[in-house]
């Protein structure tokens, strides 16, 4: 791979991993949703994310040029070769935990893909334009529920606040940048994440205000995913997700 392709490969992999791992988490709600409509909604979100992961993995495989498919990338890597943000792999917990994760992530993605659609890389720009339309619905879904639970009963308010507080430490990492970011930024390919943070924070504050919830206090921010270092949860996800491919390599339906 040329240097620029190597960088784009890393970037595409990171974006694919974020979508792929969160999709797996949301799919775990299938048949476990609090109500039927929500079961459908969460699995619909998962489906959007699978489609997005497919797009970014396909592009990564193309850049790598070794004739791999998107499935090879999804099913034949170990934890340390995954670069998804840690928040994506956090367990679903109760419904409020899932909604808090959705709120933080979808608002971030909204601002992120709004910028990436102006990328000088045509594939990134096209995938971002497509994704942005879907993310708007994810964000509206998460904000609706945050407000409904926050401004709901005493119990739902308490659970929503607790979920927001517990996940806050994983939000700092969303804006972390390394050499891949800075070198691609110089070429107009990637997004300046530091520019997104104030917009993201303001958006979250506005939703929380309407939901009568408090903004979590700034605390220690967990980090690791840019280096492929994960929480213990990712290994369990991969164990579940990759079982078939590992036990019966090249199995076909």
């Amino acid at each position: 791979m040329t240097d620029i392709n190597q960088l784009k490969y890393s970037y595409s992999l990171r974006l694919g991993d974020n979508a792929w791992i969160l999709s797996h988490r949301l799919a775990e709600w299938c048949s476990n949703g609090p109500i039927l409509e929500e079961d459908l909604a969460l699995t619909n979100l998962a489906l959007d994310l699978i489609g997005r992961a497919q797009g970014f993995y396909k592009y990564a495989a193309e850049l790598e040029g070794k004739g791999k498919s998107e499935d090879d990338i999804a099913y034949r890597r170990n934890e340390r070769q995954y670069f998804n943000n840690l928040i994506m792999e956090m367990p679903n917990g109760n419904f409020a935990d899932t909604i808090a994760r959705q709120l933080y992530v979808s608002v971030f993605e909204y601002y992120f893909f709004r910028e990436l659609k102006n990328s000088k890389d045509e594939t990134f720009a096209a995938l971002a334009a497509k994704t942005l339309k879907e993310v708007k619905y994810h964000m509206a879904h998460a904000a609706d529920w945050t407000i409904r639970l926050g401004d709901g009963t005493e119990e739902s308010h308490k659970k929503m606040q607790k979920a927001l507080n517990e996940l806050w430490m994983y939000t700092g990492e969303l804006f972390e940048m390394n050499d891949v970011d800075s070198e691609l930024m110089a070429q107009g390919v990637s997004v300046d994440l530091s520019m997104l943070k104030p917009k993201w924070e303001q958006h979250i504050i506005d939703v929380l205000k309407e939901a009568t919830l408090a903004q979590p206090e700034d605390i220690y921010m967990q980090t690791g995913s840019r280096q492929g270092i994960h929480t213990e949860h990712l290994g369990h996800i991969l164990g579940d997700m990759q079982y078939l491919q590992r036990a019966y390599p090249d199995a076909k339906w």
Binding site: E37, E38, L40, A41, N44, L45, L47, D48, E134, Y137, A140, H141, D144
Partner: peptide
């Protein structure tokens, strides 16, 4: 609206 997501991603209930 009952739900923003219906039987497929492109539809709402």
């Amino acid at each position: 609206v009952v739900s923003r997501f219906g039987s497929t991603a492109c539809k709402a209930l």
